[in-house]
């Protein structure tokens, strides 16, 4: 991968572990590609710093600043020492000419994120918290490979209450509470790093009924 980036050396930015790359709310005019190290994306909500994502080499962040200088929607911190490539509107053309594949990858990321955000919006629109949690499972199911046997309604997800809480826009403790009640009703089984949904069609019916009454 590194040889791809030779031409872009002059866009290199290095940050030490713990340093802020950009702050939420500051006007954004550049986006970044991680060459080495890890970057943590956080948001300060009330009195808590919430980790939204941890990004690895080859990943982008800040790309929403690409075409419009709107405020940053999160803070990016170097989790380890990092080497970044910094692109802005001025040198974007150079990137496009030198490596259109990178730009095409950004386009793919945008496509995926638009969908994720739309889907997340649908989840958040549900008023009942248990319905939101169920809908998160439906979303995860939509994005995973279908089982070979179409009548098989059991689904295993490699996910955690933290992830689900994030998607459902609820606190982790509330999420655990909902998951426990699902478990008591034998609708899910929770184990380390894994959650099994016994009958995904049951969740689908549940969410559908709540979505209808909602709109």
């Amino acid at each position: 991968m590194s040889s791809d980036f030779e031409t872009f050396k002059r866009f290199g930015v290095d940050k030490k572990a713990g340093e802020i790359i950009f702050c939420e709310f500051e006007p954004g005019d550049a986006f970044y590609l991680i060459q080495s190290g890890k970057v943590k994306i956080v948001k300060v909500i009330g009195e808590v710093e919430k980790t939204i994502d941890i990004l690895n080499p080859g990943e982008f962040f800040g790309e929403m600043a690409l075409l419009e200088q709107a405020p940053r929607t999160a803070t990016a911190l170097a989790l380890t020492d990092v080497k970044l490539l910094e692109f802005n509107q001025q040198n974007f053309d150079i990137l496009m000419q030198g490596n259109p594949q990178i730009v095409l990858n950004i386009l793919k990321i945008f496509s995926k994120r638009i969908y994720d955000q739309k889907r997340r919006f649908m989840i958040l629109k549900l008023e009942e918290i248990p319905a939101r949690v169920a809908d998160v499972f439906l979303m995860l199911d939509e994005n995973s490979r279908k089982p070979e046997d179409p009548t098989d309604m059991t689904r295993t997800f490699n996910t955690t209450p933290e992830d689900i809480a994030h998607w459902a826009g609820i606190t982790v403790s509330k999420c655990v509470e909902v998951l426990n009640s699902f478990q008591a009703q034998r609708r899910v089984e929770i184990s380390q790093g894994k959650i099994v949904v016994k009958n995904i069609a049951d969740f689908q019916r549940f969410v559908n009924s709540r979505r209808r009454t909602n709109t």
Binding site: M64, L66, L67, E68, L107, F110, S111, I114
Partner: peptide, 10 residues
């Protein structure tokens, strides 16, 4: 497409 998508995303 980037322009259109970035707008939608925003």
């Amino acid at each position: 497409m980037l322009k259109v998508f970035s707008n939608q995303l925003r």
